[in-house]
Nucleic acid binder design. Structure first.
Lengths: 203, 203
DNA sequence: GTTTGTATTAGACCGGTCGTCTAGAAACGA
DNA sequence: TCGTTTCTAGACGACCGGTCTAATACAAAC
C-alpha cells in the first residue's frame, strides 16, 4: 500500500507522540516504575495502537533511547559548530547547556543517559546497547572537539583526547546523579571547575 | 512482653535477612523492578511478615540504604586507616577496591549509590535523603583524607580538599554507570588516570 | 493448665501490570 | 464500487503489586 503524505504524517505523528510522551514521563520516573497505560493515556493514544508501532515495552525503550540520542547528537553537533568561537568556548557552552537542562527544577532533568543508565543497563540488553551507541556518539564527538581544541590552541590536555573526553563525560554523568540526590546544582559548579582544570583553561 | 535473648536475636536476624536479600536483589534489578514477593521468597520469609518489620516498601528502601551506607562507611574508615601507608596510597587502594566491587562480572556491581541514585532520587523523598546522608558521609571522609594527604606530602591538589573530594566521587560514580552501559572496566582505568592527575601522583 | 498479651504469619484484597485479541473504522488501489 | 491493508478501539486474561485484617504461635503470669 502506498500512503499519501497526509497519512504518512499522521502515522509518524502518533508514533512520535508516544515516543515524546514516554520520554517526558520516563525521564521523571524511570523505566520500570512507569506503565504503558500512563504513557498512552497521557498521549491520548489507545492501548491497541501501541502494539502496532512497537513490539513490546522493551522494544519501545530501545526506540525511545535511539530517538533521544538522535536529537541529542544533532544538537551537540550544532553546539560544536558555533561560529566565531574557539573550540574551548564551544565545549564550555555545551556543559553550560548541560547544567541548564539537567537542573532539578524543570521536571527533574531530562538526560536519559543519567536517568536510565544504571537502571536499565542490567535489565534489558537491547536498551543497554542503545545506551552504549548513544554515549559512544557523545564521547566520540567530544574527543574530536578536544582534538580540534588542541589544534586551535584554545585548550591543552594531558594524555589522549579520547581518554579526556571519556573522563569528562563520566564526571558530568556523576555530577548529574549527585544533583538529583542533593537537589543542588553545586555538583555542576564543581564539575565545571574540574573541567577547566583538565582542559587547562583560565579558572 | 519481655523478650529473652534468643527471641531478640531471631527477630533482628529476620529483619537483617530481609535487608541483606533485598540489597542483593535490588543492586541487580533496581528498586521499582523488584517486588516484595521476590525478596521475601528468596529470603524465605512469609509475605505477611514484611509489614511487621517495615512500614512500607518506601520505608524498607530507606532502611536498606541506611543499612548499606553504615557498612560502607565502616569499611571506608578502615581503608583510610591502613598502617604503613601514605594517605595517597590509602586513597588509591579505596578506588582499587571500588573497581573490584563494581565490576560487572560479579552480579553486576553492588554499589547502591550507583544503582539506585538516579532512579530513586525523584521517586521517594525519604530514600533521596538517605542517599544524601550516605554520599555526604563518603565525600566528607574523602575530603578529610585528601586534607591529610596534603599534610603528609603524599599528594597535592588545586583548590579545596572538599571540592576535590566531590569531583573525584562524581567521576567514579559516572565511571560506574559507564561500566554498566559498556560492560567494560575501561572507564575505571580512565577514572584512575584522571584521579592520579588531579592528585598529582606519579602516572 | 489456663489465661493473657504480644510477635508473627497466612492469605484475601483490589488495583494495576503487560500483552493479546477481536472488531471495526479509515484510507488506499483498482 | 469493492477489496485490502493500515490503524484504532478497548475489553480481556493471567498475573503480580503493595497493603491490611484476622488468625495463629508462643512466652510469661497466675
Amino acid at each position: 500500500m502506498l500512503m499519501n503524505t497526509e497519512t504518512t504524517l499522521k502515522t509518524t505523528d502518533v508514533r512520535e507522540n508516544i515516543l515524546a510522551t514516554g520520554q517526558r514521563i520516563m525521564a521523571g520516573k524511570g523505566f520500570s516504575a512507569v506503565g504503558l497505560n500512563e504513557i498512552l493515556a497521557t498521549a491520548g493514544v489507545p492501548k491497541g495502537s501501541f502494539y502496532h508501532y512497537f513490539g513490546s515495552k522493551d522494544a519501545f525503550g530501545e526506540a525511545l533511547l535511539d530517538h533521544y540520542f538522535e536529537h541529542y547528537l544533532a544538537e551537540l553537533d550544532e553546539m560544536l559548530r558555533q561560529p566565531n568561537k574557539t573550540m574551548a568556548e564551544r565545549l564550555i557552552s555545551y556543559w553550560q547547556k548541560w547544567e541548564e537542562n539537567q537542573s532539578f527544577f524543570d521536571c527533574q532533568g531530562k538526560c536519559l543517559a543519567v536517568k536510565l543508565g544504571a537502571e536499565v543497563a542490567d535489565l534489558s540488553e537491547t536498551m543497554r546497547l542503545a545506551l552504549k551507541r548513544g554515549t559512544k556518539g557523545i564521547i566520540d564527538r567530544l574527543a574530536q572537539a578536544i582534538e580540534a581544541g588542541t589544534a586551535d590552541g584554545s585548550l591543552s590536555i594531558k594524555g589522549s583526547a579520547h581518554d579526556n573526553a571519556e573522563s569528562l563525560y563520566q564526571l558530568w554523568l556523576g555530577a548529574s546523579v549527585m544533583v538529583k540526590i542533593g537537589r543542588t546544582t553545586h555538583p555542576f559548579e564543581i564539575a565545571m571547575k574540574t573541567t577547566r582544570q583538565i582542559l587547562h583553561l583560565s579558572a
